[in-house]
Design a protein around this nucleic acid. Structure first.
Lengths: 193, 193
DNA sequence: AGTGATATGGACGCACCGTCCGTTTCGCCG
DNA sequence: CGGCGAAACGGACGGTGCGTCCATATCACT
């Protein structure tokens, strides 16, 4: 890859901007590739050249926001970053995920992203992070448990909680925090190490 | 409703049989309404008269199998039925759900059922059951927690575990059992009543 | 400026959805 | 037993969105 041609880069930016606007207005599920192409002022083939489907566009838009959280997890202050107890870090991660879903959930909800969410790079990152926490806490079968613990913050679940059940984000966070502590706190372990 | 006309009943049976065969062969996601109608030997309008979409057909097919588990939860022997400790019952419920997904997961995976899974009657049933367990175990915010605890046995999650991660059903069951115990067992509570 | 590689755009073919309406079948009633 | 209104049927139809194809325009390097 010798460097992206100038017109290609310009069109990529246009597409992303158009998609962001349309997704925000109509919801990611109700926007067709044709609409995005028209709004961006590019042809459909141009769109398909860069992004194989809607999911890829949504992922590209999400990436930016997710990267911020990823940085925090790696090198931020506790309890999100390193230093706190695993249960605390998991609770903090859950809370951050809820915030992320509150802000940008509309990008993923309803689109095929839901089906492919396990494939996107971000999921692998969350997975690795929580896996580390589970290993730190000496949980058995961490590779399986990590999937179970990620499931409660799946976009569909969050949407269900917020829209159908009318739970507040705060209540959801509280329940997730309790879940984190119940799963990772070993009561017999001495707290003051 | 004065009683279903004979031809209507016959066609309903045909449709369900055809759908079951096609879903089993090609997967629920890859079967169109047209295919089902053709296989059943009925017109498309006839199909739409009974079932608004693929999801409704899949739900109708699943219902039968789910009902068996529902009966067990209500009146079966412990630990699935009443009598055992909440953590035991939750673990047993998880195991039964895994069995259900192993057997009939292909009906729901990939179809729109995934999107609407919160709407189907069966979900409400699982929800009520687990909610009862949570109340018995004096968990806080049970209405929120129940959604979090149901998420790990969502069809997509299970498929991901089995197909992409190559975890065995047994490993998943074991992890779910551990999750159930970690969440619901109160270590300080006396085990002997 | 010339030139080959790369990118563009919109038309095209395809598949499926969900509806519409003329025709057929049912089951009751005289 | 035959007629009749209601209910069900079936396949054609219009519409939407997908993903591809290729003639044309644009770029970047010499």
């Amino acid at each position: 890859m010798v460097a992206e041609r100038a017109d290609a880069a310009r069109n990529r930016r246009r597409v992303l901007a158009a998609a962001a606007a349309l997704f925000a207005e109509h919801g990611a599920a109700n926007v067709s590739m044709e609409q995005i192409a028209a709004e961006a002022g590019v042809g459909k083939a141009t769109l398909y050249r860069r992004f194989p489907d809607r999911a890829a566009i949504a992922v590209a838009l999400l990436d930016e926001h997710e990267r911020a959280l990823q940085d925090e997890l790696i090198s931020g202050a506790p309890p999100l970053g390193p230093g706190a107890a695993p249960a605390e870090r998991l609770a903090a991660f859950y809370a951050a995920m809820v915030d992320l879903l509150e802000q940008h959930g509309h990008l993923v909800l309803g689109a095929e992203v839901g089906h492919r969410r396990f494939d996107v790079g971000a999921y692998q990152f969350w997975r690795t992070h929580v896996l580390t926490l589970l290993r730190d806490a000496h949980v058995e079968r961490p590779e399986v448990m990590v999937e179970l613990l990620l499931a409660p913050v799946a976009p569909e679940v969050h949407r269900h909680q917020r829209e159908a059940l009318h739970h507040t984000a705060e209540r959801v966070k509280a329940a997730l925090a309790e879940l984190a502590h119940r799963v990772l706190d070993r009561p017999e372990t001495d707290k003051g190490t």
